[in-house]
Design a protein around this nucleic acid. Structure first.
Length: 787
RNA sequence: GCCGGAGUGGCGGAACUGGUAUACGCGCACGACUUAAAAUCGUGUACCUCUGGUAUGCGGGUUCGACUCCCGCCUCCGGCACCA
């Protein structure tokens, strides 16, 4: 038994002292930027999911370093945001203090896991030297007109007491605390991410190293939809309602107009309707509990009628809960015969249901058949639907329009623990950006940082911080008191690692070109529609302002599968089934935990923890350790040498493709083969130890030194194979009769059909089977098939 | 409902562009060592009516040959969900 604790402690110290994992500046080497999604350092420490991500990326980065790449493999802390602040509140401490504690703990745990990070490049989003540049990027956005102030209703979490972006919701609830979210009009800063919607969508096609599933999530999140806008005039109010539709062909089936409760049109029309109070009351209700409202909810605007743009008929106008404020124009024309929601609404409110498309009589008939034509549509009767879309749009004075599901990014939080938004409100000059030379705007020390719930950040109460001189007119000004969301710091951190100490620029241009883009980005699928869209957006803005040279930040993306609790299901503190990777490592060693996580399943696949299964990897490492005593002079026989070359080839290919599970299996086969021979030739063992090094870095270095090496195995060259030497001299080929395998024959590699057939004849059983049959197919070195 | 992914031994999984299904590991059984147990090592381990036959979620198809390709279903997991 090897003493894993002793070995781990010794090598950790040694690696640090020898700076084994320092990033190489040798630009003659090919670069490899391997990045992991940095964690929010919670009070619970690293969990098994972190470990699986970091270990996978670590195996890859370690192999690349040994292969002679110039590897950048850094780590940092995403320490601003609601969870950090919430944790500090619970502890009754300042978030600064708890963040420092948690970071220290995480860092120690990362080091224990043997992760080969270059700690000289460690970053922390809460460090003023870091968030100076987060604020700087915000100013660039502001100056480009990509940040704007809005008073529109936002998602408000009554428990977190802050406004949230769409991306912060999950099923209409707060992603953090699961509270039902209300709609609340609030002054806020919003980023114009929709300006980049097309680029974010189109450039997905260039990301060959991304899985289709992540790209699909992003495509859907962006939700580009081509349709039409049609104007409906409301003569009594002197207003025009523009509705968005993908089905202008159904215009003759319009029974009413439905407006979102949040729609500006409601505002415009209110003074002209006779039931103003009731409508306002209804809107208020809708703002609060929107989640489970049915299609039926709605209220007519009495006295208001829109003019049908083709027939000229008067159409009633409703405010309806089912119409979204943030999609299209916030107004739709309703066709109860051909839309399920409109149909349900019309039935409840007693509105006409007129079928205008031929086909299915069972209403609402939603699908358009290729043969569908218009009916009940005046002179347009008989026109095929697709054609009618254009014709009716034109007749109605409408035009084509593209809309997106993606909405602008609500960027202010009414909380303390975040980057202050670097703007000043001046009575004379309006909104004035903080001059770049005055950055960072540091978060002030406070006694109480609890959220207020008033829609204002706790910073608003700190008068001495809020009151400033206007940089423009030198008059009295007030600081913006909202802070940025947690997503801000993580939207550009990949650039900071490249040049962590820079005080004069976001990133040095030369260095940026030396490292970007990130070659291998490893993390969780949960960020597919959040962090990964935000980071791509900021990166494109930075490209447009010349700060970065690439259009996309992450060339290849690898997402990890979830580690479930023993027997399946989610790990949770409540169920008491949380597996702590470091606690396991206490008794079986870090190397065994690493090998276990690598071997258990394909990296991207969900897998359940198996407490019995972890013994296997330790046994394997024990066998490798025991082999050192059998190492001696001499050469291996041909079979072993061939296996060595085959092993090198497949382990290298597997790690490159993140197939760690099969890489481990291959290593086990090789190690088991060495276990079967009397004296293990040194050459074979040297290869085994180096192939093992990315997986079991501690034991590998121990064994490497036992072989007489002075420097770390992690700076040794990764073994290379001779493809020819990996070739078998003989092959076993299958003999099939009518497609069934009846046996095999072993022949020299490359044997022709005649030679194979004569070998078949030598086998009594196969001879009987194949007697009188003809060869249908012969594939060299693979099969011979008789019929 | 829509989109994406996956169904292979008792379990996690392997099988590259169609070519010997079940690698590797866990578990289990038996054996060795031991006073005994643990640990370790060795052997075996898809199923059956076993000279053969049947098995990769189910039903078809293409092929000399299908886990792999095509058509139609079922189940599970993940994401989005009043998107006009």
């Amino acid at each position: 038994m090897y003493d894993h604790k002793e070995i781990e402690g010794r090598w950790q110290k040694r690696w640090r002292a020898d700076k084994v994992y320092q990033t190489s500046e040798d630009t003659t080497k090919e670069k490899c930027y391997s990045l992991v999604m940095f964690p929010y350092p919670s009070g619970d420490g690293l969990h098994i999911g972190h470990a699986r991500i970091y270990i996978g990326a670590d195996i890859y980065a370690r192999m690349r370093r040994m292969q002679g790449y110039r590897v950048l493999h850094p780590m940092g802390w995403d320490a601003f945001g609601l969870p950090a602040e919430g944790y500090a509140l619970k502890q009754g401490k300042h978030p600064q203090e708890t963040t420092e504690q948690n970071v220290a703990n995480f860092k120690q745990q990362c080091q224990q896991l043997g992760l080969a990070y270059d700690w000289e490049r460690e970053i922390n989003t809460t460090d003023p030297a870091y968030y100076k540049w987060t604020q700087w990027i915000f100013l660039q956005l502001y100056k480009k007109g990509l940040a704007y102030e809005s008073h529109a209703p936002v998602n408000w979490c009554p428990s977190c007491k802050t406004g949230l972006a769409n991306e912060d919701l999950s099923g209409g609830k707060c992603e953090r605390c699961d509270s039902a979210v209300e709609r609340k009009p609030l002054r806020q800063w919003v980023l114009r991410i929709t300006d980049y919607a097309d680029q974010l969508l189109d450039d997905l096609e260039t990301l060959e190293g991304w899985s289709e599933s992540v790209k699909e999530v992003q495509r859907h999140w962006i939700g580009r939809q081509e349709g039409f806008v049609i104007p409906f005039v409301v003569p009594s109010a002197g207003a025009t309602i523009e509705v968005f539709t993908t089905r202008p062909d159904t215009l003759f089936g319009c029974s009413y107009i439905a407006l979102s409760p949040e729609s500006g049109y409601v505002e415009t029309l209110l003074p002209h309707c006779t039931n103003r109070e009731a409508v306002e009351e209804y809107r208020r209700e809708q703002y609060i509990a929107k989640a489970d409202e049915t299609v039926s909810s709605g209220m007519v605007l009495e006295g208001i009628f829109a003019k049908h743009p083709i027939t000229g008929d008067s159409v009633p106008v409703y405010v309806a809960g089912y119409v979204l404020g943030g999609y299209g124009t916030g107004a739709v024309f309703a066709v109860p015969a051909h839309d399920e929601r409109d149909h349900a609404f019309a039935q409840i409110h007693g509105l006409p249901i007129t079928q205008v498309v031929s086909g299915d009589d069972h209403l609402p008939a939603v699908e358009i058949a290729a043969s569908s034509v218009l009916i009940n549509s005046g002179k347009y009767d008989g026109t095929p639907c697709e054609e009618a879309k254009k014709i009716l749009t034109e007749a109605a004075g409408g035009k084509p329009e593209v809309v997106y599901r993606l909405q602008d990014w609500v960027f202010s939080r009414q909380r303390y623990w975040g980057e202050p938004i670097p703007l000043i409100h001046c009575e004379q000059c309006g909104v004035v950006p903080v001059p770049e030379e005055d950055l960072p705007v540091e978060l002030p020390e406070v006694d109480s940082y609890e959220p207020t719930g008033t829609g204002e950040s706790p910073l608003a109460a700190i008068t001495e911080w809020v009151s400033v001189t206007c940089p423009q007119c030198k008059g009295a000004g007030k600081r913006e008191t909202n802070t940025m969301p947690q997503w801000a710091g993580s939207s550009w951190y990949h650039l900071r690692y490249i040049d962590p100490g820079n005080t004069t620029a976001l990133v040095d241009k030369e260095k940026e070109r030396q490292w970007m883009p990130v070659d291998m980005y490893t993390g969780g699928m949960e960020h597919a529609a959040r962090h990964l869209i935000y980071a791509r957006f900021w990166h494109k803005v930075l490209r447009d302002s010349g700060a970065v040279s690439t259009s996309e930040p992450y060339a290849t993306l690898r997402t990890v599968g979830i580690v479930q609790a023993e027997g399946g299901g989610k790990m949770s503190k409540r169920s008491g089934n949380v597996v702590d990777p470091l606690a396991i490592a206490e008794y079986i060693g870090v190397d065994a935990v690493r090998v276990y996580l690598a071997h258990i399943a394909p990296f991207a696949q969900t897998v359940a923890w198996d407490s019995k299964g972890v013994a296997g990897p330790r046994r394997f490492l024990e066998r490798v350790y025991a082999l050192r005593e059998k190492v001696g002079a001499g050469n291996a026989d041909k079979a072993v040498t061939r296996l060595r070359h085959k092993t090198i080839l497949s382990v290298t290919a597997d790690i490159t493709a993140y197939r760690f599970n099969t890489a481990v299996a291959t290593l086990m086969i090789f190690a088991n083969a060495l276990g079967d021979i009397e004296t293990v030739p040194q050459e074979e063992y040297r290869v085994l130890v180096r192939l093992l090094a990315p997986f079991a870095p501690y034991l590998a270095d121990e064994l490497w030194h036992a072989l007489g090496n002075e420097t770390s195995v992690h700076t040794a060259p990764f073994p290379e194979a001779d493809a020819a030497a990996a070739q078998e001299e003989t092959v076993t080929i299958a003999v099939q009769v009518q497609g069934k395998t009846r046996g095999t024959v072993t022949v020299p590699r490359g044997s022709e059909q005649e030679a194979v057939l004569s070998t078949v004849q030598e086998d009594e059983r196969l001879r009987d089977y194949t007697n009188g049959l003809t060869v249908k197919v012969f594939v060299k070195d693979k099969i011979v098939s008789f019929v």
